[in-house]
Design a protein around this nucleic acid. Sequence first.
DNA 1: GTCAATTCCTACTAAATTACTATGAATAGT
DNA 2: ACTATTCATAGTAATTTAGTAGGAATTGAC
Lengths: 134, 134
Amino acid sequence: MKMSSKARYGLYAAVELAKNYNSDEYLNVSTLSQATGVTEKYLEQIIALMKKAGIVSATRGASGGYKLTAGPDAITVGQVLRAVEDNLEIVDCLHVECSQRGKCVARNLWEKLYHNINSYLDTISLTQLAEDNI
Amino acid sequence: MKMSSKARYGLYAAVELAKNYNSDEYLNVSTLSQATGVTEKYLEQIIALMKKAGIVSATRGASGGYKLTAGPDAITVGQVLRAVEDNLEIVDCLHVECSQRGKCVARNLWEKLYHNINSYLDTISLTQLAEDNI
DNA sequence: GTCAATTCCTACTAAATTACTATGAATAGT
DNA sequence: ACTATTCATAGTAATTTAGTAGGAATTGAC
């Protein structure tokens, strides 16, 4: 039950973008890579996931880069993690039909646990994370 | 962030052992395998982890098998999962020293999340799980 | 309108982990 | 002694993760 490196790196990048939010410049991958210690090419892929999820926007070309689509107060850790981790789901049987008989003793447990985790993660904004105010 | 099959199978086995708790017979791997649909050899390994964690006891030889060391009311899902999943830890940096600078923005988050998950899982007993009373 | 800086897209690969399978020794009841 | 069982450990195949690589598309700057 480990978080992937994508999840960790995604958070690092999100925090950097949060810090930059009040600037009018975009942060490019090269800068983010230096700030986070993650290779550019890998970060590109991770940020692409955040973009796809709508929490990051981008502009191309010279002086292009990335920006949060909303203030860091309004974006939660849960949103970031769900974007980069493949949906954060604890167990496949929540969306795929489980091979076990319909009456799997654990199914309800996984659902509640999943809900529990996400509820918690959605109480924490990027601002709070950046300020370590958790 | 997926639960391993060990975690799922471990719970299945634990529920079977819970049902058997009031009997004076031990459940052997072969029976458990049939009840859960998991191969005997794999189950052996999983139950060994539970035994190591002290929630299951065993006797060898003819008419040997396994039994919970305490009533299913007194054993939680969290105990089972921590036994079979390698400690359930969300992220390595909770016990291994993290390569990131000491001031990792996420560390506190992982700790709280880890605590959160375990607290929840420890509120659910095997009895509750077996009765789907979650 | 060309050039350079950037994102975007997608294929590939190496390493690690997971999910088993296999073999056989140790033990205990009958 | 025999048989049913757990216990210990090694091996392996499949899957996933974590990253590399190459280049096309786009945009701003000059």
